[in-house]
Nucleic acid binder design. Structure first.
Lengths: 266, 266
DNA sequence: CAAATAGTGTCTATGAGACACTATGCA
DNA sequence: TGCATAGTGTCTCATAGACACTATTTG
């Protein structure tokens, strides 16, 4: 499918004219730019991703990652935050431009995707972001989402392909999340402000898809300095002996790192 | 500095009109997109980055990372490969779209940078790539490089600021490289096709800026399966007992990982 | 021979994983 | 009392780091 790019523009003040073959060195071609979000949460012990059902062509009726065009007055991170707020109904304070985070929600850049025909309409690049959040209220149909829903990632093979190259983006987001649980305190982003060690362990087990030894896990996380901060030993119950509650500590990176078992992640 | 965006375009087939305030949901604004390269190599036991002296405004006369606009018929990775070839004079075979690599040279996506005023002329996003290469021939002034030279990264504080946000991009690239030496076989990308354990160790010491114990290093790298593959025990000399030569093995990721000493990286 | 670099052996501290055991709640 | 979950102690194995020691070259 060879397309003619009619949406080339020149910017006053730059040299260069636009042809289809070879651009002058300071030539300038403009592309559409979107942000797409991999928003992960844990519901009922399942790792879920927020997907929207597309209403418009292309891929009308298919599931897709939430996202939208970057506006001229916002950075990439700001666009991602706006989309996140629109899709989840969360209101977010202003954030530093890169990385985390307000209490509990984590947002970071994942990668840029620029395959030539990833959007059949025109050349559109997307910058994907990864968001991790504790269990959220039901997503409200945002302004640009026909219908948004959290879908267990294990159910995706049976749901048909995602729109555009979103399956690849989602796979990259999942792998990033799984990898970062090893060496960062990111798992706490899936937990409410106060949580027990068992809840944190279930996060690891759910994201990695592998069981962990509860005793060793407890020793490890409580022994890693800066990971957890005990909040006055209030407790909550879950059937047995009450558990101590913790808040996330100051550490971003874990020393030593948690070790992901070699098990599969189906 | 408030600018008016005159370079907004509409793409036939998409709805939406362009205003400065609020875009319809499927609205579309176009931006300039470049790739910028952090090309690292090791020369004379110093970690060096390839920089070009800008000839044109803005930042005329300043040092900058090599890069250029993405053409409409190439992916981001292809644009990065083209720029790499133009700047270094290397001829490169066609590659799979993500990650590495042809013998010895590594290229991977680093991140996207989209601060609103990162280019004073217009809204331009850049996708940064990280390249690691063995000692290259003197860079030839490429088509769009006024002059290209490898600069030791330790010398950069005394050279004045880099153009645009390239100091931030370079810092991110350096940190990525330092981190990936820990858990990947990336250090071999700084070495020629055949190398000794001592040469590999000098790569680690140079990138990390910290000395390593030669004996323990030797045991570790030769004991990590898939990292090094002994090529018929030919040798080369460097003053003392001849050393065995190795080629990089099949492993991308190291098990167990190398450990970066806590030392500073000045 | 000495000097220089390559490579091995050995000891110790630390952390991971296995798992017995104790602690504290509820029905 | 029985059961479920929380949390600790202890053993074993693997690996990191320190460093003594051997091996193989050149001058």
């Amino acid at each position: 499918m060879k397309r003619v790019f009619v949406n080339m523009t020149r910017v006053p003040g730059t040299v260069g004219c636009v042809t289809d073959e070879r651009l002058p060195d300071d030539g300038y071609v403009a592309y559409g730019v979107t942000v797409d979000l991999v928003i992960l949460t844990i519901r009922a012990d399942q790792l879920c991703v927020l997907l929207v059902r597309r209403g418009l062509a292309p891929f009308a009726g298919a599931l897709a990652l939430p996202g939208g065009f970057v506006r001229p007055d916002e950075t990439l991170a700001q666009a991602a935050r706006r989309e996140l707020a629109e899709e989840t109904g969360l209101l977010l304070p202003e954030l530093p431009s890169r990385g985390s985070a307000w209490p509990g929600v984590h947002l970071e850049q994942l990668a840029a995707y620029g395959a030539i025909d990833r959007d059949p309409r025109a050349r559109i690049l997307t910058i994907a972001f990864l968001a991790l959040a504790p269990d959220l209220p039901e997503p409200r149909g945002g302004t640009d989402a026909a219908a948004a829903e959290f879908v267990p990632v294990t159910a995706l093979s049976g749901l048909g392909a995602l729109a555009f190259d979103h399956a690849e983006i989602l796979a990259d987001g999942l792998e990033r999340a799984r990898a970062k649980l090893e060496y960062s305190a990111l798992a706490t982003a899936f937990c409410p402000a106060e949580f027990t060690v068992a809840e944190l362990r279930r996060v690891y087990e759910t994201v990695w898809g592998a069981p962990l030894d509860a005793r060793n896990f407890h020793r490890k996380v409580t022994g890693t300095s800066g990971f957890l901060e005990p909040v006055g030993h209030s407790t909550a119950r879950d059937g047995g002996r009450p558990a101590a509650l913790y808040r996330r500590g100051a550490a971003e990176l874990l020393h030593p790192a948690m070790r992901r078992p070699p098990a599969a992640t189906p």
